[in-house]
Amino acid sequence: MANWLNLSRLRLGVQLLMLLLTVYGGNLVGYYMAEKISQNLPALSCAYDKQNGAYCVLIPLQHQLHHRVGEALVQLQAFGFKVLLPLVFTLLSFYAFFAVLNKAFCGWVCPLGTVQELLYKAGRVLKRPLRRFGVGNVGRVRWVKWAMLGGLVLLLPLLTGMGITPHSLGNPYCDVCPSRLATTLLTANTEELAIRANGGIEFALGAVANTLFGFALVASLASRQPFCRICPMLALHAVFRRLAFLRLTKERHEKCDKCGICAKACPMDIHEIHTEHGPKAFHEDCTLCGRCAEFCPEDGVIRLKFGPWTLFRSSRDYYKARVKVDQPEGGKKITFHPRREASGD
């Protein structure tokens, strides 16, 4: 790899390209749904953005649970072919993409992830402090993504389709998703920022969405990817992460116990990358960004692998070059130059 091109810069380039593609890509690939790259992309590529290049898989999941599965559970005779088949196709279509890149859709493709990372970089420039979860408190937020997936993406749309909850809870995750606001605002469209003024559930969902969006924007200046930690897409990925070609591997190494730089480099505060090895090191919150491998100072301990092939492996030489320009937490390396003597020797 050329000196100027490290894994982080490569990833940033891919992220910016994917940001353009997911937010504005409809101008390139086509306008109608059938022309999109995928209607079940494993990233928060929002369909409310009328210029987007692909649709997020969480949209058809909610709609099918609402309009098909839920409604058909009430009419059980139609359950098999007409109901389950579209849901299976949605999941298979999602998996066709996911099987290749796995959770890298979060770390390399998701437009909201990229926006948060760019804000975090801005926070480093503005010298804002770094807020992170430690071993003792990271568990407080990890369950939220499962609640979001189970409650907002799966359960409420299903109950709405069955007529138990109101129609306004038919796609509740989309209603609170910050990516809907971020991607539409990036196209200079303020429509999604406006919320229902008539009170009720839609007003409440809009208020939650906008508050969450505002919080995530500012929190991103001090914390790495704050929304990603509770994103239901992260949970959906976690379910399938053992069934894809791209993955993270870590071998046991005697120096790991005394080091822990990999955990500092992890934007998702996954301390297990330091303390575990083998399958447990590829944690459910991992976004396959590869920073742990970049900042591991030992040869071949952490790898990004595609099937049997190693795409990137940690190495001491790479680590030395990397820490000269960047800190594990993401800020620029601060170097102190010794003062010259007044004599001018």
Binding site: N210, G214, L217
Partner: peptide, 28 residues
């Protein structure tokens, strides 16, 4: 597009969220 919707209320809640995150930006 803005029928029965309020852009001001929407922006207000976004600002509220931003305000809630401001303590994170303070140095300790």
């Amino acid at each position: 597009a803005y029928d029965n919707k309020s852009l001001w209320a929407g922006a207000g809640f976004a600002v509220l969220g931003m305000g809630m995150a401001l303590p994170l930006l303070r140095r300790r």
